[in-house]
Amino acid sequence: MGTAAACASLTETPDQRRDLLLTVIEDYHRDRSNLIQVLHMAQAIYGHLPEDVLCTVAREMALPFSEVSGVVSFYSYFTTRPRGRHTVQVCLGTACYVRGGKKVLDALRDILAIDVGQTTADQAFSLEVKRCIGACGLAPAVAIDGTVYRRVAPGKLKAILGKYE
């Protein structure tokens, strides 16, 4: 569902996205204990969680806005700002870290001129950090939109990024 919804977000109209969100909330029985799952889906539908989406979730699930916002701001997975067209994830799990993941991250910060959690001004790239993406044998690893790049050296980054617009 997550991927399907994410794909849908590229083509759906605002009304269709809203309908999809309302269906998700209904599917989760408007139950407050499902708030995190609903937000997860909402982010898949919209790409990020702007205030009006949080208001809709709060209203439909009969929760205070401050509570929904509290959950969203607690988890680093959720973002209230639009993401770039491409998501660059640097693995800083133990294996990647000891094999130079930190240097890769620093190089990416320089090249993209943004910090972790931010998006480039041209909306092309968002930068994230992951704690182990399960590719320890390929360390240090970087994933862009789900494609994993193995044994990434800082010098290779420009070439890799160049494949994306």
Binding site: E51, P64, E67, V68, S69, G70, S73, T80
Partner: peptide, 15 residues
């Protein structure tokens, strides 16, 4: 409600 987490936690209306 509590917003954010760790050292940046703040009690407020959210957003």
């Amino acid at each position: 409600n509590a917003q954010h987490r760790g050292f940046t936690t703040e009690i407020g209306p959210g957003g």
